[in-house]
Design a protein around this nucleic acid. Structure first.
Lengths: 344, 344
DNA sequence: CAGGCGCCTGTTAACGATAACAACATCGCA
DNA sequence: TGCGATGTTGTTATCGTTAACAGGCGCCTG
């Protein structure tokens, strides 16, 4: 029996089993609608021929591709990787597959990639954040498919929305640093800020203006430990008087902390530091990184469940879910036992 | 104009533009085959109606799904995330999309997921490693599509193979530790070993047996920094006489190093440590983690290029590519200036 | 025993696109 | 002037599946 996988059709199986094509089709989709004898006959024939259902033909006829499209900024970030894993785990038991695209944080690319994924007629669509090209928004609005915007809470969701408030999280961090005794706080950000980072920054700027009454001190650097080190060098040169630092990511924060210690600043006594994202390493670099923890996997999982719920016509609950965040206070921002001594 | 995205077909556009369906089809696939007038007329009509090509119908008729299926153990590991990114970046310019599945390191799940992805008739298939269910191997062998096994070099590739030799890398690490002065080396591994880890371990066992003449000392723990810490505690309790440690992953190695320092072992003087994977944090935790660096992104990129090359009928080169690895020697394994002093 | 209802299986016509070929106009050149 | 080459557009059949409906058969019920 020489036959390439995928070259065997319902017709081949039907012929061999001595039944009609429809009967074979039913054997796979509604086996209980067939008599036991017929079912077994068909399955035996299918097995012998190595039949594999053709989801493309099925999708064309039934208009159900069993596919969910997902465009995220990058897969090379544990954040989105975990979100994607959550989605995949939630939809796969119901027979849906994930078609993935990445935008590299660029709205143009997001639109391009999503439009090319839409050609596969996904039954639902998942996007990161709420910042999209207007043309894409318009296209998606015309789509009947369920749509989920993930990771950040957006003011006007297109449809479903699962995430947390970056603004609230940023405010919580700055508030925490202030309560721990910082008087002059800087914000370390990435060079190209996306909406999530901008929200954290806005929260920072509002808080320092209102509570500490100083102008924002913002340092932009690369999203890496090395970037954090370089950022701290610049901070020390330009603003030696800061005593608090909020970094938009844990990897930057860890780099800043390692560098601070290397140049003789004590953390948290000279400089209190907080990051974002709860990377594992933050727990382990002494004295431990204060950070914000967000349930990434849960975000994807909840979204996946909401989507398949809609697709399967289950009664639906709220279309927006705030998964919240957790402020994790560790040594990098601890209140010093003795009164903090200002340098210089 | 109320029309749901995706509900507009070639026929609708053709009617509006006053041409035949084929002409519209050509307008998108071979625009230079049409006269300028016709092309513009068609494109205008398509635009007005919001036409979006239906890749499902196209795929059914042309037998080209423009899709590549990929099953990896997990997406929540920077290693595979980078590999996937490399593939995606290489295939996307040629119009191919990635359909992703994860196996969670289980060959049964790998088979299940891959079979369900095959229903979409991908034009090529990508797998991690060479360790598969025999049934899957058989199915894939019957598939005419190009197939790539990534990340590790396997003895008998099914088709294409891009990766490096885990055995050689493991041997290089142990050899390095020995040259740096270790006499008694332990191996810290994960609780469920997959083929890649087993190859590293085999290299370790061979080397210590041959060169150092001691029985293997193996500690299994969780794949995390915390796991490395716990592993080191066990190592200290059970084998206080080791002076070298090879960890199968950098996160374990970093945990072990942090814990070693906490319990008073000096690294590298009391215990030389080496990891695997070159995580960024390894560069930054003093005294710097000795490790093996593998070009993950390149692996994916090369595989992606080989695949589209095959699909586009370009002349092909070798079907197996060894991307090699790099031994990165840092402080955690440095030869101590003074003769190493054995503890106790 | 007619009528009706379930159960099981089959027939027909799509789904939206493309391959293959056909047809026609135009053009260049012998 | 004739003829093949070239360029442009159209026609037909088909990809593999499923929706919708049709029909046969057995069995129950009144």
């Amino acid at each position: 029996m020489i036959s390439h996988l995928g070259s065997v059709s319902l017709e081949d199986v039907a012929k061999r089993a001595g039944v009609s094509i429809m009967t074979v089709s039913r054997a796979f989709r509604r086996p209980d609608a067939l008599s036991e004898d017929t079912l077994e006959k068909v399955l035996r024939a299918a097995d012998a021929l190595g039949y594999l259902p053709n989801q493309i033909a099925s999708g064309l006829r039934s208009k159900r591709s069993q596919t969910i499209a997902c465009v995220i900024p990058t897969i090379s970030s544990p954040v989105y990787a975990n979100v994607v894993q959550g989605i995949a785990d939630a939809i796969s038991p119901e027979g849906y597959s994930l078609v993935l695209g990445t935008s590299n944080y660029a709205v143009d690319e997001e639109r391009r990639v999503m439009m090319s994924l839409l050609a596969y007629r996904p039954e639902a669509v998942v996007l990161a954040g709420g910042d999209h090209r207007p043309e894409l928004t318009r296209s998606l609005a015309r789509l009947k498919a369920p749509l989920a915007e993930l990771w950040e809470l957006v003011p006007k969701p297109l449809d479903m929305n699962v995430g947390f408030s970056n603004h609230a999280a940023g405010a919580a961090i700055v508030d925490h640093l202030i309560r721990m005794g910082s008087h002059r706080i800087a914000f370390m950000t990435v060079k190209v800020e996306h909406a999530r980072v901008r929200a954290r920054r806005a929260a920072y700027e509002a808080a320092v203006a209102k509570v500490l009454d100083h102008a924002p001190i913002v340092i932009a650097t690369d999203l890496s430990i090395e970037g954090g080190r370089r950022g701290l060098k610049r901070l020390r040169d330009r603003h030696p008087d800061v005593d608090g630092l909020f970094c938009t990511s844990d990897s930057i924060a860890v780099g800043a902390m390692l560098e601070a210690m290397e140049v003789g600043w004590s953390v948290p006594d000279d400089l209190a530091i907080a990051g974002f994202g709860d990377l594992e390493i933050g727990r382990h670099v002494p004295p431990g990184m204060t950070t914000v923890r967000v349930p990434e996997y849960r975000v994807g999982q909840i979204a996946g469940e909401m989507i398949v719920g809609r697709l399967l016509g289950r009664p639906e609950g709220a279309r927006t879910v705030d998964v919240g965040f957790e402020l994790v206070a560790r040594g990098s921002s601890a209140r010093p036992e003795i009164k903090r001594v200002r340098r210089r």
